[in-house]
Design a protein around this nucleic acid. Structure first.
Length: 161
DNA sequence: GCCAACGTTGGC
DNA sequence: GCCAACGTTGGC
């Protein structure tokens, strides 16, 4: 998908819970991006993330943290059903099928980066100075990435360190 | 395991 | 609607 409206995102996952390899090995290389319980992230999921958008798959709480691979959005925002299930860890009684509070998207693995880009290295890359991931105190698990940042990340992964 | 950052909750 | 308390994130 190469239409001009394509957007780019960075999504964080703890690899112990769900790594980029897990996405590659999932049925159809696809998974729900579920259980996000933060309003800013929710708004991105519900309103802005569309099929065809590019995703940088980031390993957080990892050793080392960094970007492992590329994924693609295959389904835009729809209600997060884990919020409806009283037995689910992320159950939220404020969310109902009639009036869903939380949303999720589906993403599919595209390919691993040629090489893993650690957070340490990302901080040194020219052109990524403004990346929200690198800003102090940033905790958003879904963040927009500019087209320039996307291209820079992909190009850097192709270069030897 | 620590703790800074910051989002959310709830009393007032 | 303020803001203190609390909980979570996530790098280190």
């Amino acid at each position: 998908v190469t239409d001009g409206n394509r957007r780019y995102w960075l999504m964080k996952s703890e690899p112990e819970t769900f790594s980029y390899d897990d996405l590659e090995n999932a049925p159809g290389k696809t998974t729900h991006w579920n259980s996000i319980r933060n309003f800013k992230a929710r708004n991105f999921l519900r309103d802005d993330i569309k099929p065809g958008d590019g995703v940088l798959f980031y390993h957080s709480n990892a050793d080392p943290p960094g970007i492992a691979g590329i994924a693609e959005v295959v389904r835009g925002g729809y209600p997060d059903h884990t919020a409806f299930d009283p037995n689910d860890e992320y159950y939220d009684p404020k969310s109902s099928k009639d009036n869903p509070l939380w949303y999720m998207v589906d993403i599919r693995a595209v390919r691993p980066l040629e090489r893993f880009l650690s957070l340490d290295e990302l901080r040194t890359i020219k052109g990524l100075e403004g990346m929200s991931l690198l800003k102090k105190g940033n905790r958003l698990s879904v963040q927009p990435v500019t087209a320039e940042e996307w291209e820079t990340v992909l190009a850097t992964a192709k270069q030897k360190r």
